[in-house]
Write a protein that binds this DNA or RNA. Structure first.
Lengths: 344, 344
DNA sequence: CAGACGATTGTTAGCGTTCACAGCGCGGTT
DNA sequence: AACCGCGCTGTGAACGCTAACAATCGTCTG
């Protein structure tokens, strides 16, 4: 009488009938409600297995208040930072029993964020992680009457929303100090795109670290995270004998810079030392291997999720989480010897 | 009497009341049903705007058959290929009015895929895109009684499921022929991880292209996509005078290889020519700039989605889409001059 | 002018779950 | 012996929407 593969997937009432209980009892078993007799629970679970029953998340979300899906708003998931954070969040979410719905931003203005958020709201996500570290995101978010708990990655602590961030200032300080300690008079900077918060933070910290050490602050060069922009910056810097140390706002830019230096016969680290930021997997194998600042994106993802789950439990008091601390990874692009140009 | 911001988000019945119609008429307007008087439609739309009403996707999915959410199963979304494909799929999905739910695979066996798929099934996704190009994925998928329409990326055409793929053989042939045409006697190969389909395809095509040209097939070197593995391969290859041309299974491996060669004083392209695969954004700025095979992942994403939507419309006849053709991007790592070692 | 038909709208039932509120049976109090 | 309370279970009503059918109106056909 058993058909081996039921044409229609089993629903709760099927399980209930097979187990000889009411659908509500099945629901209780599935949700870990305490007051169910062990024997009954067993019977239900057996039926669940037998029918290969899987609860319908849609119905669950509709009936109860909360869905088991989180939303992630991200931008350009090919970039290492966002991609790594996304992966971290997804893993942590899955471990906590949540699904993840993503929306990538095309435009990074108020409307973009707004659209993304309402797209997620339509799906009744329980909460949202926003990985959109732009300078104007904070403002956009503040003016959004989002009804959903949200956590922002790297949006500075300026916004009204609880945020997880890597301590960019600390990382930058590590980089700059490292170079100064190697004997460089000052450190040049190829900064990131101005509408990214990280880029701003790094630039600010670079400047203030230099100033704090009583060094002159050279004019900085523009970049946009891309290797190309680093390359162009490198061409500009290559001719200048004053340049003995460069701090790039990310590793891709550093790669381009290294390329330009190589082309122009500038030796790294003999003539110029170079430091990047991120520690992408390729950094170790650049020519020369790149000294850089490692950020633990996995940890960022994990904390994001922890924070968001806290927020779901008690929407009143947004807990503050400590910033994730980056570390310096010293490699050959600065390693060998401090070189102060002209000191022969 | 109006409260400016309703405490509870408006639902369909609210709109209906405000517009003086039944909730069903609202539903009709929202779903573009033809038989609604223009004047009525206007009234409803006005009410929708006024209440800032957004239909609840959960309820929609529950009541109707199909949800407007697609699932994506992916592996390691930090890798360039999968990340780029994911982004392409997400963009295309969003353009088509679909949300995207992702699950990343931890383990790449049957159970991993199975778990991921049922996690998505719970969310009642309308269809699934599987970006998990492993050799055993095909087998795992075939044995899965998935009830949801699915499209596989790069799973070869071996599986039972409709697939979109880049023509790996064509790309590899471009790479190998390019090297042969430059005058190299044969081409060495640093292959990718053996459980990846692309890696297999590229290795096979490398071998058969050489054989087809009547050249000897050197032993290939193992790699795992990482720059590190390319570096190790490079160290091994650097001492060998027979090695004048190397085809790496991806750009990261090529980067590591270049690093190793540089360390060992092997000049590229003077002593050895190197070709990669993927054309990651950094390829152009490696030292030297890397000749490589460009894959249009955006196009892959778009076709995936088109195919999946076709499948949703008519589950009977899975349409076949043409393979995406990669192109050769020639740069300095092979460009300058064909060098046949020993010909001084 | 009766009947039919198309366009438009309303009504009623679910979709598969959880929530709130009973019920039932049993042991321990008074 | 009647009562309360507790552990366990069942019943009915949402949740917000779409599907299927019924109802109404005006118009068209013969």
């Amino acid at each position: 009488m058993d058909q081996p593969s039921p044409p229609r997937p089993a629903v709760m009432i099927d399980v209930a009938r097979l187990a000889g209980v009411s659908h509500q009892t099945v629901s209780r078993v599935l949700n870990g409600h305490p007051s169910v007799r062990d024997e009954t629970r067993e019977r239900v679970l057996t039926a669940v297995r037998q029918l290969n029953y899987r609860p319908n998340a849609l119905a669950r979300g509709l009936a109860g208040r909360r869905s088991r899906v989180l939303g992630v708003v991200s931008f350009d998931t090919i970039l290492y930072g966002p991609a790594a954070t996304l992966l971290g969040v997804e893993r942590a979410a899955r471990a906590a029993g949540y699904g993840v719905s993503i929306v990538t931003l095309e435009q990074l203005d108020h409307d973009g964020v707004s659209d993304a958020l309402s797209a997620l709201a339509e799906q009744s996500v329980a909460g949202v992680v926003i990985i959109a570290p732009f300078t104007n995101t904070a403002a956009a978010l503040r003016s959004l009457p989002i009804g959903i708990p949200a956590v922002v990655v790297e949006a500075g602590l300026s916004g009204a929303l609880p945020a997880i961030s890597v301590d960019q200032a600390a990382g930058t300080e590590l980089a700059v100090r490292h170079l100064l300690e190697l004997g460089h008079e000052t450190v040049w900077h190829v900064r990131g795109p101005q509408n990214w918060l990280e880029a701003r933070d790094r630039e600010d910290a670079w400047r203030s670290t230099l100033e704090g050490a009583g060094r002159s602050v050279p004019p900085m060069i523009d970049g946009d995270w891309s290797a190309r922009s680093g390359y162009e910056a490198g061409l500009r810097l290559a001719g200048d004998p004053r340049v003995t140390a460069v701090f790039c706002a990310n590793d891709q830019q550093a790669l381009g810079l290294l390329r330009a230096f190589h082309e122009r016969g500038v030796r790294v680290p003999d003539d110029v030392s170079v430091v990047g930021f991120d520690d992408i997997p390729e950094a170790e194998f650049m020519s020369p291997p790149l000294t850089t600042i490692r950020q633990d994106f996995d940890e960022v993802g994990r904390r994001c999720l922890a924070m968001l789950l806290d927020l779901l439990d008690s929407p009143v008091e947004p807990p503050t989480y400590p910033r994730v601390m980056p570390v310096l990874v010293s490699r050959a692009s600065t390693g060998i010897r401090p070189s102060v140009n002209g000191t022969a």
